[in-house]
Structure formats: structure tokens, C-alpha cells
Amino acid sequence: MGGYTLNFRVLLQYSGLFLQGVVLTIKICVGSMIISFFLGMLLAVMRQSKSRVARFVSTVWVEVLRNTPFLIQLFFFYYGLPQLGIYVDALVVAIIALGINSSAPNCEVIRSGLMAVKTGYYEASAALGFSKFQTFTRVVLPISLRLAFKPLTSNFVNLVLTSSVCYGITLMEIMGVAKTVSARSNRPFEIYLILLVVYCIFTYLVSFVAKAIDRKIQIKL
């Protein structure tokens, strides 16, 4: 490699900084996961509802999010909100933007979970005397969330990978830290290599755990 020797040891002194970055990344991801899950569920229910308006709103919401880059959505909120007189922390903007962005794929997978629940289950619950709402919360939703579990986790992995874009609004999450440290230490190759590996390990870990949980809770229809 052209006389270049890899030196990872130089980076040890920045480990505190990296830890802070990891903590911030976790904050962003956990917050936006919660938002995207519930928003996705709401959108999926709207998409399946009888109301034309609800279906239309949900469709437009999902299509706009899926057909525009997350970076632009992030800038839109980050630079746009102050124009509306709303001044919020970059962290909050990141959580909201990422949560909204991820609600679209979550809507899709929860929706296909809902569609996989056969009419027989609706009728069986009705025949037992459940109201429509009870049928939905006690039977339909638990079944469809189990069906959607695996794709949901892969959406969440994607969310974590996408969270690195939040560095674009000056957030010192793991990617932001990497950029700063690479300027200070002049060891960009090592830093980005480590980052690549760390993200890979993380993704593998998540999909491993997800598979194990899925095996436990999965149902065959």
C-alpha cells in the first residue's frame, strides 16, 4: 500500500469523543424509531380504512417521502422550521425528520401484515362478540405486527444507517465525530474503515438478534 502504514493507535486518544458520538447516534435512532413505528402504524391503518380522505393523505405522505432524498427532507425541516417561527434543537429536528422519513417504509410493511390477516379471523372474532375495535386491537394487530416483525427490523437497520446523514446538520453523532477527528488526526482512511466495520458489526448483530426473536414469535398462517 504505497509505503503507507496503518496506524489505529493514534485514534485511541479520541475514544471519548467517539463514545459521545455513539451516544448521540443512539439518541437519534431510538427517538426516531419510536416515532416512525407509531406513525407507520397510523399510516397503515389509514391506508386500509374506508375513508377516501384518510387513504389519500396516507398515500401522498408515503409517496412524497419515498420519492425525495432524506437529506433534502432534513434540510427542509432544519432550515425551514425557523422560518415558521419554530426554533428547535438540531437533535430534535433529526429525530423528527428521521422518524417521519422511516414512517413510509414502516407503513408499507405493517400494511402488508394487515392485508395478510384473512377475513376468517375477523369473522371468528365477530362471532365471539368482539367489537370492531376489539377485533383490531386483540386479534388483527397482534397478528400483523408479528408478520411484519422481520421487515420492520430491517427498516430499523436502514434507519440507523440513514442516521449518519444527520451529520449534515452539524450534529456530532458518530459520523460527525469521524469527520472532525479525521481532520485533527489526519488519519481519514483508518477512521472511515473502522466506521465501516463498526456499522457492519452492528447490522449483523441486530439481524442476528432479530432472527432469533422472529423464530420465537413468528406465526404460520
Partner: peptide, 18 residues
Amino acid sequence: NSPLIVQLFLVFFGLPSV
């Protein structure tokens, strides 16, 4: 399994040092 942005930075900012 890694963010595209990391890949971009590795290629553009990282590779020159090797």
C-alpha cells in the same frame, strides 16, 4: 451494511492517504 456516506468518505477522503 454500512452507510453510503461512510463509503463515500472512505473513498474520497480515505483512499488518498494510501
